[in-house]
Structures are given as structure tokens and as C-alpha cells.
Simulated assay, not measured.
Amino acid sequence: MTAPLPAAFRTQVVGAALLDDPHRPTAFLAAQRAYPAGLRGLWEFPGGKQEPGETCEAALRRECAEELGAHVELLAEVPGPHPQGWPLKDTAAMRVWTGVLAAGSPAPAAGQDHLAVRWVPLGDAAAALALPWIPADLPIVRALLARLTA
């Protein structure tokens, strides 16, 4: 039996499922973690922690600029099982939005936080799910694939 979710998580994290096209996406962006050692080499949605006084959307735009050197336009949230999104651990949850690169934005680059970034094809769900994802991100990947390939 699964433990009940807390009423509120102490830490709010945000993540971006960037799409290659807002109308007919064929791929989404994944980033390979550089650290900490226990997560090095695993794949995730780019993003990070929301700072005090920041909206989730502003935090996600800031994180994408810092981590990827890219400017993004957010589209729709990928709703999780909790009002704060997708549980990551007992104290943190992540809200995830689809988005696209803003007009004139540089292409996403790995930067210091990631070893690599890659466009993951939506047409091959098995290959997308076969990437070694951070375990907490895997249910989000499944939800994203179901949403975009329906």
C-alpha cells in the first residue's frame, strides 16, 4: 500500500518538458544530470527549486535560462497527483509544464548542471522510457507521453 501524500511539501521544484513544436511535437528535451554523484548520468526534466517570492512559472523560466542558456515559453502544466505536482520525496514535489523555445532563443546547451541534453522522440515510447531516468521523473515521463501521443 502506498503511503498517503502530505498536505503540503516544504520544497517546490519546477520542471520543463520542452517540445520541439507547440502544435505537432515530435520530441521533448531531456537533460542528463552531472551531479550529485548518486544521480550523475541519469536523465531528468530541466528545472530547479522555486525561490521565495517567485511564481512557479517565473522560477521555471529562470531555471531554463540558468541551466540551458535558453529562453522558454510555457504552454500547459502536466498535472500531478498532488496540488504541488509530482512527489519527488517526502519533502519536495515538482510541477512540470510543457513549453517551447522562445523566438530568438539560443538552442539549449548542457551547461554546468548537465552532462548532455537530447531531444527524445515521442514516436518511440519504449525508447523514451528506456533512458535511465531519475526514478521520481519516470511517472512524469509516462504521463507526458500519454498526453502527447493520445
Rank of each mutant, 00 (worst) to 15 (best):
G104A: 08
C56N: 12
P121W: 05
P46K: 03
R40E: 15
E57R: 14
A102E: 15
L18Q: 06
V117K: 14
R61D: 02
L129H: 03
T11Y: 08
V72G: 06
T98F: 12
L60K: 07
G111I: 02
A70G: 07
Q112N: 08
G69I: 00
F45C: 10
P81N: 02
A143T: 13
A107M: 13
E67G: 01
S105F: 05
G85W: 00
Q50L: 14
G41A: 07
G15H: 08
V100Q: 11
V141Y: 11
P121C: 03
A143Y: 01
P135L: 10
A34N: 10
P87A: 01
P81K: 03
A103F: 08
C64K: 00
G47L: 03
W86M: 11
E67T: 05
F9V: 14
L138K: 10
V117R: 02
D90T: 13
Q112L: 07
A130N: 09
E77Q: 14
P25M: 03
V14Q: 04
D90H: 10
L19I: 09
E57W: 11
R24I: 00
D137S: 07
P121A: 05
L39A: 12
L138V: 07
A130T: 04
R62S: 06
S105P: 09
P135C: 04
T26W: 02
F28T: 08
L138Y: 03
L60R: 10
A107P: 13
